[in-house]
Design a protein around this nucleic acid. Sequence first.
RNA 1: GGAGGGAUGGCAGAGCGGCUGAAUGCACUGGUCUUGAAAACCAGCAAGGGUUAAUACCCUUCUAGGGUUCAAAUCCCUAUCCCUCCA
Length: 429
Amino acid sequence: MLSKKQLRNDIEAVESALKKRNFSFDINQLNDLENKRKINQVETQELQNLRNTQSKSIGKAKAAGEDIKPLLDAVADLGGKLDKAKSELLVIQTQIDDIVMAMPNTPHESVPEGNSEDDNIEVSKWGEPGQYDFEVKDHVDLGEMHGLDFETAAKISGARFSVMTGKIARLHRALTQFMLDQHVENNGYTEAYVPYLVNAESLTGTGQLPKFEADLFKTHLHGEEGDAKPLYLIPTGEVPITNMVRDTIVKESDLPLKFVGHTPSFRSEAGAYGRDTRGLIRQHQFEKVELVQVAKAEDSYQILETLTGHAEGILQALELPYRKVILCAGDLGFSAAKTYDLEVWLPGQSAYREISSCSCFEDFQARRLQLRYKNPETNKPELLHTLNGSGLAVGRTLVAILENHQQADGSIRIPDVLHNYMGGITVIN
RNA sequence: GGAGGGAUGGCAGAGCGGCUGAAUGCACUGGUCUUGAAAACCAGCAAGGGUUAAUACCCUUCUAGGGUUCAAAUCCCUAUCCCUCCA
């Protein structure tokens, strides 16, 4: 959520910043509501003040043994007036909130202009796409040779699910373990195990709600819609991990907070009809190792670089060629101020594909989360900055390993760092 | 399945219709003392919001949502979470 103070004082700056990401809103409407709000709020608070002082004098008169009847008559019609003023104010404030909650974050100044992923800019590249003296297969053909099974998954659940058995399943697990260990042991993250079903407050905190409910799987505790608070399957580990610190005032000495968690992610993929229908790239359920950091405002952009570096370290250790791109304003996610995508080379597609997305949210999430620290200089609570990145998406990493480390006979070379996790297996054949 | 108890500031914990935005302790900040530190003593210290150029003033908040009342942390109802006991 953007700062309402800023929207009040400098709405033009917000407008031009959001224009960069093709988001426009009705300035006049918001200003009108804001003016109404001001009048209404002042009136309401004056009525409350009147009621408070009157009530106090009744209390005093009663204690002194005086006749309070005239005082009671004087406040007789106050309640009705106050209720009316309050409910009018609530309507206006709800209208303002609805508008503000639907506004995306403003892009950081270093974010390039652009409308779509075609305008993202390559920042760096690591490794060279491999040269193969045989016809490369894609991960579906390779995977099906070794235990990746979409047909069985379709029987159990439907499209966009997968079953893995045998060595592929083990490789999938090994990747997760390797990533977690790497981030905990070498990068200083604290491992976190978190719930996979979360409430609406959590999703509002990180920005998925209210705008993107259609992307989520929603469950109802007692069957019927509406009779209980719904729980949602997490679309990313970012949601539960970041929400661990919702409504807290963090000690300055504990900053930055660094958490890593392995969770499944569930996405409805509404609006993705026909996209990536083949294979593991776009699934309703997939595993991810998620990095989350919470930092002071002045540190957050430096941390975005190191956090992205932590994700890159995994790709390098797994000998996977990739490039790093900075997302243009038009391709930026709703809550993000700046995002780097890591795109891994997939020989089966002859293309770089996203495998990690690392973002700084500035105080956009923190404002919704009421996530703060006490600044010792001002002795006041101040909003923190949140960051997260995939380190990495496990399913897509599996795809990258299959395709990049395939050999002429369809066997898969296991990168050295995984040998221990694979119980000594060096080749899947 | 049944019966109770609880949720209060960063933390612990009093209060149980008006004098309570909230005692007290811890933590924290500043000061005195000290070569320095500790201890001791003194002072300060919840959050969110509004009006204002500012000083200042005002509103809201004691898990959440309703209700009773001129007035609610305090009484009533509902929900959530925690705990204890019985089966």
